[in-house]
């Protein structure tokens, strides 16, 4: 089966200009491709440019130069409004601190991305219900986030990320606020999603978490330091 490229970044550079004429090159020419169905972990120390790369991949930020093709579409030159549209249709976000709306029901939270797609309220609810069933939270539709455990809240966030059938799931330290047992649970869940063919990009600094992925892209000082199998990298580290 010929694999389809969903992410293609070429010589991606990002420079932050600070007041007083100072500038800082955070990304110094990053290139890689991600095929459909991959499970990629992006690792790197803080200050390595990992977050900037993540924001760019998440269409929250534009590169200073270079190209970024998402699902075959060049997005580095899009306007804010167009970027919002791309985020809503092709991406699913999972955050470290879940970022659920605490005053809203679980169903409202899960269906939030559909709100901006012009889908009717009843349809939103039906799809949220179906998605909650998929993440093992059937019957929790009308609860509020505070009534759920951290692991359950993160599953709500995953359901929210999946509801618009995104091309990629972007998970930014998804286990950062969870205990190790719940972390394993969530990562296993990500693995099972990946087995169903969903492309996942995971940003983490924990090797244990990265182990759940198949491929590792390690960023250091604004460039790709390693790109390959997670296992090989880990084995090399342990020698």
């Amino acid at each position: 089966m010929p694999q389809k490229t969903v992410v293609e970044v070429n010589n991606l550079k990002k420079t932050y200009y600070m007041p007083g004429g100072m500038s800082q090159n955070v990304l110094k020419g990053v290139s890689f491709q991600i095929e459909e169905g991959e499970f990629v972990a992006i690792m790197g120390h803080s200050g390595s440019g990992k977050s900037t790369l993540m924001n760019t991949l998440g269409c929250l930020d534009r590169p200073t130069s270079g190209t970024y093709l998402l699902d075959g579409k060049e997005i580095s030159k899009l306007s804010d409004e167009e970027l919002a549209l791309v985020r809503g249709r092709t991406l699913g976000f999972v955050f470290q601190n879940f970022n659920l709306l605490m005053k809203r029901t679980i169903a409202d939270n899960v269906s939030l991305p559909l709100l901006y797609q012009g889908i009717s309220k009843t349809q939103m609810y039906t799809r949220a219900k179906a998605m909650l069933e998929k993440v093992g939270l059937a019957g929790y539709e009308n609860r509020i986030p505070n009534q759920l455990s951290g692991g359950m809240q993160q599953r709500v966030a995953i359901a929210r990320a999946l509801i618009n059938n995104p091309k990629i799931i972007l998970a930014d330290e998804p286990t950062g606020n969870l205990d190790s047992q719940t972390s394993d649970e969530i990562m296993t869940f990500f693995q099972s999603l990946n087995k169903q063919g969903i492309t996942i990009i995971l940003v983490t600094h924990e090797p244990d978490v990265a182990m759940y992925a198949k491929r590792l892209i390690r960023i250091a000082d604004g460039v790709v330091e390693y790109d390959g199998s997670v296992k090989e990298y880990m084995e090399r580290q342990h020698v």
């Binding site: 998440g58 929250l60 955050f95 939030l112």
Partner: peptide, 12 residues
């Protein structure tokens, strides 16, 4: 921030 990340246009 969450709403924007999930696709809310600025206008909205």
């Amino acid at each position: 921030g969450t709403r924007k990340a999930l696709g809310a246009p600025n206008r909205w």
